[in-house]
Structures are given as C-alpha cells and as structure tokens.
Design a protein around this nucleic acid. Structure first.
Lengths: 200, 200
DNA sequence: CTCCTTTTCAATCATTTGATTGAATAAATC
DNA sequence: GATTTATTCAATCAAATGATTGAAAAGGAG
C-alpha cells in the first residue's frame, strides 16, 4: 500500500502557506504539522522547495480549471455581473473558510503578494488559460475600452483582489459566512471600475 | 561627531525591504549593504527586529505626513480627480524610482502584502490621520454612497493599489518615467470604482 | 516463513541565523 | 596629553535551518 504521508505533507504545506506564507515556512513546521519525520520530505519529494513549488502548482491548476470551466459554462446572453460572479466565485461563495477553492485562492494571492519563488515559477504557465477565456468575454461587455485599457483594468481588478484579500475586508469576505452584503459591495465596486469611462 | 552608521543601517534596511521584503531580510544582509559590522545593529538599535520596525514606522509617518499635508492644501472647490491625484501622488509622480516618497510607499505596500510584523505593529497608529483627513473629503464627492459603502470603497482602492504595486503594471507605474498614459489609466479606473452606482 | 522493497525514524551534518563579548580604535572632554 | 566616552570590529555563541545517513520497521510477493 502506498503511504499516505505525501498527501499529509502537501496538506500541511497548504495550511502553513495559508497561515504563514512561504517565507516563514520551515521544514520542521511541515513535518510536525503532518505528523511525519523530517526526512519524509526529502524522501517523498526531493526537497522542501520542490514540495512547496508542487503545492503551488497544483493549487494554481486546480483553481484555474474550476474558473475556466465555470466561465465556459455561461450562457451566451450572460451579463457582465454574471461573468464577474462566476469568475470570482471562490471569494464570493458563502461556504466559509473550509471551502477548498477559497483556500487555494488565498494561498495563491498571498504567494503572489510576497512574490513566493515557488509560486512565481508556476505563474506564467497557468496564467494563460484564464485570460484567454476571460478576456474575450470581458471585451464583449466593455466595448468602450480599447484593448490596452481593457487589459489594464483586468489586471487592476486582479491586483485589487490580491490587495483586498490581505486586508481585514478581504478576510471577512473569504470567511463568507460573514454577510452577503460584502459580496454585493465588492461586485458593485468591481463593476464600477470596469464600466467607468475610458481614459483614452 | 555622532556616527553616521545608524543612518546607513536604516538606509540599507529600506533598500532591502524594497527588494526582498521583511521575511528575507538578514542581519548580515543589512550590515554588509551598509558597510558596517554585524554588531552595529545591536549597538545602535537594540535588535534587528527593532531596527526594522523603526524603519517601517518612520516610513509610515513620513508618507502619512506628506499625504495629509497635500490633501489639506487642496482648495475647497477641488474635484474628486484632484483629490485622488493628490492622494496618490507618490505613485503617479513621474520623478522615477529615486523619488523617496514612491520608495517609501512601495516599502509599505509590500510590507502590508506580506503582513510584515514590523509594519503591522505600526499600522494602527499611523492609519488614522490619513483617513480622518481623507474620508470626509471623499464623502463630499461621493454622496450616493452610504458611510459603510464609502469606507468599503476607500479600503478597496487602498487594497487595490497594494495589489497593483506588486504586479508588473504597478512597477511600471512606480518607475514613472514609463509613460503618463499609465497614470491616466489608473485614475480612470479608480474614479470608476468610486463613482459607480451604490450596491446598497 | 523468507526475501525484497518501501517507508519511517533517530542521529547527525554543515550552514545560516540573530546576538554577544571583550579588545581595539576613534572621538570628545577636561 | 591624559582620561573618559563612544564606536567599531573580529571572534564566538547558541539556536534553527535544510539536508543526509544508516539502521529499523512495515508491507507485499513468492
């Protein structure tokens, strides 16, 4: 029977990335959280860095897939608000902090904020699918924007969410159970930022 | 003559906070960058953590003061756009990366993103002045928003900028010399997000 | 049961970390 | 110029870090 230790190690890394980020991530932290021996990391994965990078990569893929599938499943006559709700679903779902997608999202955003090496190495690979699916749809709803400005605002919203999730507000959003009000506030703000008059 | 070593140490910390963040900040990094002995940190400041916290605190105060003064100097009939330009001046100025205020801003935003302990301890103290000055003025321009929603959007913009400065776009903004176009794109987006219809 | 592979574990290693010491040097004070 | 104070420095410390080893334990196959 194959060991369940690798799985526990990966879960431990997820927990710790969420709570302390990659920078404050210790080999012994990982193994103690997973209830494993220090040597387990080197045995199952080649090194600590390798394990962390793997966890980041899988999180990125998982979130990207879920997002892409939801966006693709939208009806042709969906509104911009529909698109945003589906796109940002992990942040808006009220299922609370146990929700796996929300957790992965937070891990990724946190990693991006601290420019975690293990994440950055995976970034470029996973960024394309979402943008290729999402950008064309966004363009259909925002015809007043040039392509440059559309891309800028798309990135701005992404950056904005990254910043928000680090803030008290963001955490209350991810906690979900909080209140559906926060969700409406967030969407209204994003919509305003996207639909506002063009600069160019 | 009092030594100039403490000053060099603080400058070194600023440089390193900017390039590597607090998490990856090493005592020897600091002293080597400053051209000082390892013991210098303990001698002039009590500990490394103490020094870092001090640098964060001074950066926070300096930026806060500059912002507050600019906002207060606005004429009574200023537009919302004026207010935003003045408020975000460090990010928008085209003076380039040498500009001290822009540097401090980036240090702070990066520290916030990684929840740097040395910054967090200073946060609550310095946050009030800006918000006390800025929020009332914002309210005058955004009468369609409830107080709750106003505060939310104010925080959203702050979080958004924090996220943006970590991204490629943000860096090109801070580099300033880049192009004035980016400034207009940013302001248009912020304005849209603030002026957009209320959710509540 | 026996053999072989997989997995776990305590012990240990070399490095790096933040910090401290006491001597040496520089600066100032008288 | 002698004395005192402030500063710098090389050497050293204990703790923590990522990693490795070889022996033990567990599991599966014949």
């Amino acid at each position: 029977m194959s060991s369940e230790t690798p799985e526990r190690l990966k879960q431990a890394v997820e927990e710790l990335l969420l709570s302390k980020g990659e920078a404050g991530l210790t080999l012994r932290d990982i193994t103690e959280t997973a209830g494993a021996n220090v040597a387990a990391v080197a045995y199952h994965f080649k090194s600590k860095d390798n394990l962390v990078s793997l966890v980041f990569g899988e999180a990125l893929d998982e979130v990207t897939n879920l997002q892409t599938n939801r966006v693709k499943a939208l009806p042709t006559d969906h509104t911009l608000r529909d698109l945003i709700e589906v796109w940002l679903h992990p942040l808006l779902s009220s299922s609370g902090p146990d929700d796996r997608e929300a957790k992965l999202w937070l891990i990724i955003q946190r990693g991006a904020a601290e420019k975690a090496p293990g994440l950055v190495s995976n970034m470029m690979r996973a960024a394309n699918p979402v943008e290729q699916t999402l950008l064309p749809l966004l363009a259909r709803h925002l015809k007043h924007l040039s392509k440059d400005e559309l891309i800028f605002r798309h990135n701005a919203v992404l950056g904005g969410l990254a910043g928000l999730v680090s803030s008290p507000i963001g955490m209350s959003l991810a906690n979900g159970s909080e209140n559906p009000k926060a969700k409406d506030l967030l969407i209204a703000w994003i919509l305003g930022g996207l639909e506002g008059p063009a600069a160019l």
